[in-house]
Design a protein around this nucleic acid. Structure first.
Ligand SMILES: [Mn+2]
Ligand SMILES: [Mn+2]
Ligand SMILES: [Zn+2]
Ligand SMILES: [Zn+2]
Lengths: 149, 149
DNA sequence: ACATTAAATGATAATGATTATCAATATCAT
DNA sequence: ATGATATTGATAATCATTATCATTTAATGT
C-alpha cells in the first residue's frame, strides 16, 4: 500500500471521516496522474476505475486531499481549478507561456528567501505564496514577431 | 479632462470603437474609486451616476479598460475578479492576511530582478507576473493561537 | 454476524460570476 | 442629416462549483 494512501487514511480517521471505496478510487486515480489536473480530468480518470463514480464526489475528495496535504491547487489561471501533487514533490513556482501554454516549474531560493523577509517585515506569519511568471516562450515569441508584419 | 479619459478615447479611436456615455460613466466611476474593486462594486458606483446603466456594460468596459492599460486584475483569490488602477500607479505585489483579509501592497526590487533572470534563463519574453503572499497578520496570528487552546 | 449510528454517495437542483444573444439605440465619419 | 456600424440593456446561456436529499455504506460495539 502506498504511503499516500496510508496518510489519507490517518487523516480521515483523525477527522472522524470514513475511508470509502469512492474515495479510494479517486485517490488511486490521483496517484496515477501527474502534472496539473482539473476535477474534470480526475473524474475521467477515476471513471475508468469505477464508471459509476459521481462527479460531486471528485470535487469533495479533491478538497479532502488538499486538506490532507496531498494535493494543492497549482496555477491560478483562467478556467477550472487545477491540482497538483504535494507529497514528496518539492515546492516550486510556475512559468507559463501565454502563447502555447507550455509550463515550466522552477524554484529560485533567493526569491523564497526574499519572501520570508517580507513576511517578517510586515509581522505576518507565512502560510503560503504563489508566484506565476507569464511570458512568451522562444517559439511563440518568434511566431508573434512574424505575425506583426 | 483627466489624462486617463484622454488615453481611453485614443485607445477607442485606434480600435475603431466609440466613446459612449455608458463608457464615460463607467470610466468616471472607476477613476473616482481606489483599491481593488469588483465589477459589482463598479456597477454600484456607476449606477449612482447613471441608474439605468446595465451590468453587462460594466463587464465589457472593464475589459476595455484593462486592454487600454488603465486597469488590471489585482489579486487572484477566490470570488469575483477584482481590478485596480494601473495608470500612474507603480507595479506592486500583494501580501494578504487569510484571517481578516487585510491587504498590503509591496514591491521588492530584488525579487523583480530575480524574476527577470528566470525569464532569461528559460528564453521567455516576459509579459507579466503575479506574486501573492498569504499569511496571518499579527492580530490574526494572536487570535489563532488563543483559539488553539 | 448484526444492529446502530453517523457519514458518504450520486443525481439533481441551485448558485455565482461571467459571457452570448439580440432587437433597439446611439455614435461618428462623411 | 445620413448611413454604416458599434453599443446598449435585458435576458438567456454557460461554466465551475456547491447545496440538497433520499438512499447506501462504513465504522463501532454487541
Ligand atoms: Mn506545478
Ligand atoms: Mn494592488
Ligand atoms: Zn509558447
Ligand atoms: Zn488578519
Amino acid at each position: 500500500m502506498k504511503e499516500e494512501q496510508r496518510l489519507f487514511e490517518i487523516y480521515l480517521r483523525n477527522k472522524g471521516l470514513k475511508m470509502t471505496s469512492a474515495r479510494e478510487t479517486v485517490l488511486q486515480a490521483f496517484l496515477r496522474s501527474e502534472g496539473h489536473l482539473s476535477a474534470e480530468d480526475l473524474l475521467a480518470a477515476a471513471k475508468r476505475i469505477d464508471p459509476g463514480l459521481g462527479q460531486a464526489t471528485v470535487f469533495r475528495t479533491l478538497k479532502l486531499l488538499a486538506d490532507a496535504g496531498l494535493a494543492q491547487d497549482a496555477c491560478k489561471d483562467e478556467g477550472p481549478r487545477r491540482y497538483e501533487h504535494v507529497y514528496k514533490h518539492s515546492h516550486h513556482d510556475h512559468l507559463v507561456c501565454v502563447g502555447c501554454g507550455r509550463l515550466i516549474e522552477f524554484c529560485h531560493p533567493q526569491i523564497e528567501k526574499a519572501q520570508n523577509e517580507i513576511f517578517k517585515e510586515f509581522g505576518f506569519r507565512a502560510t503560503g505564496h504563489r508566484l506565476e511568471l507569464r511570458g512568451l516562450c522562444a517559439d511563440c515569441a518568434k511566431t508573434f514577431d512574424l505575425e506583426k508584419e
